[in-house]
Design a protein around this nucleic acid. Structure first.
Lengths: 340, 340
DNA sequence: GTTAGCACTCGCTTTGATAGAGTGCTAATC
DNA sequence: GATTAGCACTCTATCAAAGCGAGTGCTAAC
């Protein structure tokens, strides 16, 4: 038994109807559904075939059919029509290019979740392999320094350092210079024990201070894992009956609140240049609690090698056309903003 | 009709039983409940009185009684026993005093929500009336500067500034000095249009640059409102049947996600020195969506005049003793850490 | 003042009956 | 050979009736 044009049309009709209503779709519904003028009996035969092929399934004997994961997959792969989706101009959110990246990402997340009525995840960009642009030391008092580290992509990290022995204000510029010459152009991953050791040796009289500062820098840089996911519209989950029973909702919301699992997964998927859009349907997602959801992800690029991901989570019957379109548009806008 | 010892005991028994089970409490239950050896009939008479006085109410004619807001209020005001509550040492969360305040607060929130099984809110401290400690300019490239502002309490703000005309590296220290002399010891609220105007005049040849920088500083300082609430354990809400029906849960979780309303309320309540613990039962809370909850708040102090609030949100039948005790202990620990 | 006893109320659960949506199969039709 | 009308069948969802049980209020006795 193989697929033909008519079966595809019927499958599409089932999926579209199910997306709107969330109820199993019966043969009579499809029969009345314009275009293909077929009786419900014929549709029934075709549906029976589609079920055998695994594209749809029946919740119980006397119910209509709903799409299976395989059905959705076919739909997403071959039946999506691309239309231009309007998204409010992100540029307007971005008052100046100097604004905090985090603020912008939060607003993008909010925009997307309000626009789609699904939940939005945004991962802050990873900058593992970025280089140190410069560091800046400031003296707070004679035993405390403030270290500022600026990384490519204008990411700013700050850290206070308590010194074991007091230093003179006049020494600060020298130490600062020492640090900058040593760290200039270094990859963040290169700031490790070996480097710290080596630099201490070169630091001569400042060995002690420099050691403490480097430790602080390493700590500050490592801190990035701290808070890498932004979520918005988590409560949208509760709008969809198939996700909102207590047990599922609790699991989902917990996962969203924790952020750990998500951030691992979403970052693990790696850089797929070209801000490829990926669709994970049900079990295709590696996160157990999301097996009743679909997730659409996209990659945005801030700078060469600095990228993050945006994900939209909704029920399997989410409006893929809208979500994919909206994400594509958003990516285009983000790229335009960052590329300049 | 007035209150006597016995009525109080009965009320207490009702409340405690209801807290455990969440079910209306009947006269027979209380009758079997040790101490006061009274038959269910007597208890019934007393309960009828307590109902007339407004301390308890009946969901329907043939059900037991549940405490009213007034009942809880009496309980909280007069019947709480203080016991020392153990909370994991917060000091251990705090690896060094140099750690980011936000990180610590997040961990405190998490600790509290896990400890109590309720939802925890933490507001970041307001620093409206704090003074500028110093600013530090760094040159990124010839038309871009990085401004760092350090405020009392070691709060660090950063902001990139795009210049309309390029400057020389050698000018940066001079401008920096100019800024520092002018801003040193200023209250943040004093950084306003008038000041900016005045400073521009004094800045002579640097008027343009200084103006742009001051605007940026004003913007950076204003940004604080951005993200002042931390929440943890929001999904705990769903553990309590009286809060977890779809409608209530959606409202509550939305409020928690938005954070705006909460932050207004929790900050509006002002500084009540002595980290006073406040209990809001049901309607006593000004937030409509929380009328089925109770909220316990406490104030922590980071520094003279720099304080934030911690709130714990749960069902009205929350374990007030535990929550109040835990919060008191937590406050003591936080104070000990910050005071030194 | 306390308590035993009893009639009564009311929500929750179970049961059974019914309606309705949908199917699969068969036989007739195109 | 493909399509369709027709029918028996299945399964769920809904509703009412019945019974249960927890709890009450009141009265009369202790």
């Amino acid at each position: 038994m193989d697929m033909d044009e008519r079966k595809l049309k019927i499958l599409q009709a089932i999926i579209q109807n199910y997306m709107e209503t969330g109820e199993p779709v019966g043969s009579r519904t499809i029969s009345k559904y314009t275009d293909l003028n077929l009786s419900s009996a014929t549709i029934r035969n075709e549906m029976s075939d589609l079920e055998d092929m695994g594209y749809i399934l029946q919740p119980h004997t006397s119910a209509g059919r709903i799409p299976s994961d395989k059905g959705y997959r076919l739909y997403v792969d071959t039946m999506l029509e691309k239309k231009d989706r309007e998204v409010a101009d992100i540029k307007d959110l971005f008052l100046e290019k100097t604004d905090k990246l985090e603020t912008v990402l939060k607003q993008v997340a909010r925009l997307l979740s309000e626009n789609t009525n699904y939940t939005t995840l945004v991962s802050k960009p990873k900058y593992e392999h970025k280089k140190v642009k410069f560091t800046q030391l400031s003296m707070v008092n004679e035993t405390q320094l403030l270290v500022i580290i600026v990384i490519e992509g204008n990411i700013v990290k700050d850290k206070f350092v308590n010194l074991t022995e007091p230093i003179e204000e006049s020494q600060v510029p020298q130490i600062n210079f020492l640090l900058n010459t040593a760290l200039d152009g270094l990859d963040l991953t290169e700031i490790n024990m070996a480097l710290i050791h080596k630099m201490k040796e070169q630091a001569g009289q400042y060995a002690g201070v420099v050691g403490v500062i480097l430790d602080a820098i390493a700590a500050a840089v490592a801190e990035e894992d701290d808070y890498v996911m932004i979520t918005s519209g988590a409560t949208n989950i509760l709008k969809y009956p198939e996700l909102s029973d207590k047990e599922k909702a609790t699991k989902l919301l917990s996962i969203l609140e924790e952020k750990d699992t998500l951030s691992h997964w979403i970052n693990a998927s790696g850089d797929d240049t070209d801000h490829n859009i990926q669709v994970y349907i049900g079990d295709e997602s590696p996160v157990e609690a999301m097996k009743d959801c679909s997730v659409v992800t996209a990659t945005y690029h801030i700078d060469e090698g600095v990228y993050g991901k945006i994900g939209i989570v909704g029920p399997k019957r989410m409006d893929y056309e809208k979500v994919v379109g909206t994400l594509e548009n958003t990516m285009k806008q983000l790229d335009a903003i960052f590329k300049k």
